[in-house]
Design a protein around this nucleic acid. Structure first.
Lengths: 360, 360
DNA sequence: GCCGCCATTGTTAGCGCGAACATCGATAGC
DNA sequence: GCTATCGATGTTCGCGCTAACAATGGCGGC
């Protein structure tokens, strides 16, 4: 049967003006388009020699399957969506990167929707926008309480995983164990002999911030100590600076656990400005382990969060959900944090001289 | 004609088991599916009353157009791709965010492909992966030389824009004027009376780094000064630290222009450790204006890059390209940087006391 | 009063692919 | 030697939409 209706006049010489489609491959390989499709999708029942002929035809034409057409026909786009908050922040940025790498490795493309703020409404809009693009699943990087709640039901059972979120919602969650991290930080300070530990907390509506407060309280309680009132910040260095000014004016403050490294930076700045020495007068522990934290003055003792692991686990969980694999108990997965001791913490009693620090 | 072949049995009660498609809307509104399509695409020749009926039917069914089907039929996916290097870095992260926001506002979805490294090969692979997803255009955030070169020709004229890239390639470029930024930094130090300005540079294969070196050289040359040998870093705080140790051992160093804020942080750390006072003994200027830089010790004087503007312009340029609008001379667009003076720079001669700093 | 034009709407034909079913031939089983 | 079975391949249909063209009817111009 002579094809070529003349609509898309093929250029003589072996290549056509438009990109090759599955039918061109089929013709060249002398098979039906369906056999090409089977090769494309790794179906078992294709004779080895046929497969090779098809593959070679694909190579010869430089054939690229059309993802849109595949998605339309198969109802699977092999694309996942990521809804994120502020990808300029180190945590979300690192998590996003890890998700993206893992997704590509698993054969999924990644579509992004990063709202400026992170209320439930904007998460909903983000998920909606991605659902409209026919993504197969969504990962929400939403450290705020409940922001992902109910998102799945709204979109006909679209698989959704939350990362860095708290237990509040009804979607599977992968997160770092903030409570354990806060305990690591607080226990470290207590072990250094400090009589109590102050806390500069994150915003009250962030579950991360809440859990860090709880971990800090738990450590103090276990040591039989009353917790001083936490000072609220907003994660920004400026708010840490303000907290530092406030604490510098208080007497008896020898140890501070700051809920993230950026606020710790502001706090260090304030203490330095007020002539309070770190760690001689006050010990400081942060949270996150930014790449910069090692070079703060002094180098910051902090709690490391493994965002890469977080992203990888989040993606794996989503893939399992999309494949309808049994998800078991991993639907609530927690990544363990670790303490990185540097030079912003010292034994209570102050004045001890520290040896020279030398970076690698 | 009675439809309903029974294949997808509609559930009685007004809603079907599967999501509504254009034909469902058409039936409810009493028009052909093509009229619905026209409403969807804002075609002019639809009577007002008809349009309203269609819109109301859409709302009633909660109809969502299938992006895959639209893309397949129209050969436009209304998706753009972004190839980025390391989205954990502040610059790329900020640019990506700005691109994403602008793209959504312009009605485009954003697909991401962020390679771990940034050689030309991985950029090529990233563009290929996005082209396979049928994106309508690609923005490459690739600060390294030539990484985007030739990418467009490889994919049948796929519109491509490079952001934060240098002049080297053959694709339209939007970037911050690094040369001007370096001049701002160097001139500032010279105006403070410093006899010369040292430079801690970025990696040699980054065009940004090269341009900053050239700007620094130009300022020195204009002042009739010979440029001291630049010290190479790799953008990391650790490399800045090493540069700081090196410079602390030299005599006559009173002013340093560091090619980014992260290295400046490491340098400040090293100088502090060696007992060199900033700004009394040595003035330091960075580049980027990280959110943290204001809280370094001391607060860092630096050059601000407007990544938001960069992202917005990049997207606008790409949209123009995709629409085949005349792109004129904006194909090489430069964003002006600005100097942010803080407390890490002072007049040459040292020892001047600075007034107390107070954050808002 | 007839013609032609234009606004509005409908009909048909794909876009490029995968799913479902049909077909064909070879092999095994008896 | 005849049939059941299975592997390998082909045919048909439709995913949900847009593009191209056709059809209709109202209007103004002469």
């Amino acid at each position: 049967m002579s094809a070529d209706t003349g609509r898309e006049r093929p250029v003589v010489g072996g290549h056509t003006a438009r990109p090759p489609v599955i039918h061109d491959v089929a013709r060249l390989a002398g098979v039906s388009h369906q056999t090409v499709s089977r090769v494309l999708n790794d179906h078992p029942n294709v004779r080895r020699t046929t497969r090779d002929r098809v593959l070679s035809a694909m190579r010869q034409l430089n054939y690229r399957p059309n993802a849109l057409a595949r998605g339309l026909a198969s109802r699977r786009s092999r694309t996942i969506g990521v809804v994120s908050f502020d990808t300029r922040l180190f945590g979300p940025a690192s998590t996003l990167l890890a998700i993206e790498q893992a997704a590509r490795a698993a054969g999924y493309a990644v579509s992004l929707s990063s709202g400026a703020n992170l209320d439930a409404g904007s998460v909903r809009r983000g998920v909606q926008a991605l659902a409209d693009q026919s993504v197969d699943g969504v990962i929400v990087i939403a450290p705020q309480e409940d922001s992902a709640r109910g998102a799945s039901e709204m979109h006909g059972g679209l698989p959704i995983v939350a990362v860095e979120a708290g237990y509040g919602g009804d979607v599977p969650v992968v997160s770092v164990d903030q409570f354990a991290g806060a305990r690591l930080a607080t226990d470290h300070l207590l072990e250094l002999g400090h009589r109590t530990v102050w806390h500069v907390a994150g915003p009250a509506d962030w579950l991360e911030a809440q859990e860090r407060v709880e971990g800090w309280r738990a450590s103090l309680a276990e040591a039989g100590l009353a917790a001083p009132p936490p000072i609220r910040g907003d994660w920004s260095p400026a708010s840490g600076y303000r907290a530092g000014i406030e604490l510098a004016g208080k007497s008896g403050v020898t140890a501070v656990f700051v809920a993230n490294d950026e606020m710790a930076l502001g706090l260090l700045h304030a203490l330095n400005e007020r002539g309070v020495r770190v760690p001689q007068d006050v010990s400081v522990v942060g949270f996150d382990n930014l790449p910069e934290s090692e070079f703060f003055i002094p180098a910051l003792t902090t709690v490391r969060q493994d965002f890469d692991e977080l992203g990888r686990r989040g993606l794996q969980l989503l893939v399992d959900l999309m494949d309808k694999s049994p998800v078991d108990d991993r639907s609530r997965s927690r990544v363990a944090p670790s303490l990185v001791v540097r030079r912003s913490t010292a034994r209570a009693g102050g004045g001890d001289r520290m040896p020279r620090f030398s970076a690698g």
